[in-house]
Amino acid sequence: MTAIDVSAIDQDRPTISLAEPSDYLALLKPRVMSLVVLTAVTGFLAAPGHVHPVLAVVSLFAIALGAGGSGALNMWYDADIDRVMKRTAQRPVPAGRVSPGSALAFGLSLSIFSVLLLGLAANWFAASFLAFTIAFYAVFYTMGLKRRTVQNIVIGGAAGAFPPMVAWSAVTGNVSLESFVLFLIIFLWTPPHFWALAMFKMKDYGAAGIPMLPNVAGERSTRRHIFAYSLFLAPVGVLPFVLGFAGPVYGAISLLLGANFVRLAYRVLGMPDNDAAMIPAKKLFGFSIVYLFAIFALLLADIVLARGFGLHGF
């Protein structure tokens, strides 16, 4: 009787995927996508002009898909470093629930489809801008500079700040000072937000070999950078009111939010060296999330009320 080579049979047997729909949803980075949707909707409604409601929804859906596609490409490429970081080890690719090839195919498919969809629903300038945004995040930042420069978060922040400009261009076919202000708010917010996180996740980033500012320049330099960016962010957050596309209530609340951001950043600046508790950094990180969502939610409410009730802001 001929012996059966069980190992050969096992090798030929198709691999059963462990992925569930929730794993593919996780590849889209839904928390990041929710921010992209909020900022894109704000940019879309702030832009002058009128778009058919169906085309508006399709355009915003395309921008959200583009963000999700770039997130999937980021998770595909960063699976090796995600695997050694506690914060990211359970993501679908490093945890083995989604294969790298599936994540890559998923990310590329969504990215290409989103660009084509936006071009057909809105215009090809906006579609090109979306394609540039995806490439900037997935290639220039993730594959090119994230692991090579201490300014990685500053560069990555630019990619995350483009969605309101893309949405604006979907309405107008171009960009403007107002859309750049929306970009600037997110761009200036990103470094203090992530550097605060990096201060109490230094071991994780060190193990992954990512040159985050606290690991390379030290905590003292990071604290100074956080405070400096907060000083720029606070007045920029009020610019929509100053430039006239938001009302006085937005202006007052954004001023208070910015002042609190600076206050918390000042507490981080005054932290003692090697502070194991990192309480000020954790508080700033938590508030920074509230700050950005509040700024864009207020601005969105201002725009909706102004258009719906004929008010000049609220």
Rank of each mutant, 00 (worst) to 15 (best):
A159V: 14
I81T: 14
A135S: 12
F136T: 12
R148M: 08
P164Q: 05
L110K: 04
N174D: 15
G157H: 10
Q90F: 05
A170T: 01
L120C: 07
A167C: 12
A161Y: 00
F106S: 07
Q151S: 13
W124I: 04
N152A: 10
A159N: 13
Y137E: 13
T133E: 09
V181Q: 03
F180I: 14
G101W: 10
P163F: 09
V115N: 02
P163L: 13
Y141C: 07
R91I: 01
V175N: 00
L116F: 15
E178W: 02
D82C: 12
R148L: 13
V181S: 05
L120T: 12
A161K: 00
R97S: 06
Q90N: 14
G173R: 02
R83P: 02
A138R: 07
A95I: 00
V154N: 14
V139C: 07
G144D: 11
L182N: 03
R87F: 10
P164E: 05
A79N: 13
L130G: 05
A79F: 12
G101H: 10
Y141G: 01
V98R: 01
M143T: 06
S109H: 04
A138Y: 10
G107D: 03
L117E: 05
A158C: 10
F106T: 07
R147I: 12
P163K: 11
L177F: 12
G156E: 03
A127H: 12
L118S: 01
V181L: 11
V181I: 15
L182E: 08
V98T: 01
A167W: 01
N152C: 09
T172G: 06
Q90Y: 06
T88G: 06
G119M: 05
A159L: 14
R97F: 03
A161P: 00
D78A: 13
F106K: 07
I155V: 15
D78V: 13
D80L: 11
I153E: 06
A95D: 05
A122K: 01
A89C: 07
K86Y: 02
S102Y: 04
G119K: 06
A121E: 00
G107H: 05
G160M: 04
W124L: 05
T149V: 06
I112R: 11
F125S: 00
G96N: 12
D80E: 15
A89W: 02
V181A: 09
S176Q: 06
T88I: 09
M165W: 03
T149G: 00
F125C: 02
A127M: 13
L110G: 02
M85Y: 03
N174V: 13
A105C: 05
I153W: 04
F106A: 07
P100M: 10
T149E: 00
L130P: 08
M85D: 11
A131S: 05
W124N: 03
A79M: 13
D80W: 08
F106I: 10
V115P: 00
S99L: 14
P163G: 10
A126M: 08
A161H: 00
W76Y: 14
F132V: 13
N152Y: 08
V115F: 03
A122E: 01
R91N: 01
G96L: 10
A121S: 14
F140Q: 02
I134P: 03
A105N: 08
S169Q: 06
V175D: 00
S179D: 07
L182P: 04
P92Q: 04
L120R: 12
A159P: 13
G156K: 03
V139Y: 14
S102M: 12
F162C: 04
S114D: 11
F113W: 08
